[in-house]
Amino acid sequence: MPDIVVCVKQTVDVYQLKPHPETLEPVFSQAQSKISDFDLNALEEALRIREKGGGRVSVVSAGPSINQLLIRETLAMGADEAHIISHPLLSTYDGRVTATVLSKLVEKAGRWDLILCGEASLDNSDYQTGPRLAEIFGVPHLAYVTKLEISDGRLKAWKSMEDGLHVASCSMPAVVTVGLEINTPRLPSLLMIRAATKKPIHEYRLSDLGLTEEELNPSVTLRELKALKVERRRVKLEGKPEELAEKLADILVREALAR
């Protein structure tokens, strides 16, 4: 009966982001927020483990302004409780800050055997949180997991790597990060989301976690965020098919050489 903590991040829906026509900076105000896709896979995996072997599933989340409705969706999927903190300083962060704050929330969640995270976040794709949490707690960690099994208190994980499939195993407690391939997250129905109001969401202040504002200062700062501007050349070739092929080949060769 492993007790599991799942880390979820509330991100901007990057598929809705559009660059400002002049500054090329993404216009965040036009995009909705959501739970990062990978984190839903992590939660789904936790729920499947619980369906087989029992245990408790807690969700932790930290951010500048956590939307309780989104947390309630994770509870509606089946998590038992949530521990969250909203602090304005968390609008700028790096992997170290995130992992530190989350580790404090994990402690609030109580006893745990397994921490599940998305391998990266939808918006920043830093791939930092999982490994850093494992470092903080001094436990083994398995990343990029596409299939996970638990037997006799040990984890067995299939990891999809560039050179092929790795199969690794480790004892618990441990941290596992998962990708989109591992499962299809269940979708809580509207009634489930409403019914999830019964489940507890524990919200903390910084001091509750024993943290100071200084500790939220990121070591890495974001200088600039801009969309790449790609424009087509819009060259129009005319002539007979044979001539066109000739011209096109010329252009392709020229462009390739220019690189």
Binding site: M77, T184, P185, R186, L187, P188, S189, L191, M192
Partner: peptide, 16 residues
């Protein structure tokens, strides 16, 4: 089935 929520990707996407 939908109450249970275990739907495949395309259905989840439409409902989302």
């Amino acid at each position: 089935l939908t109450l249970e929520g275990k739907l495949e990707k395309r259905k989840v996407a439409m409902l989302t």
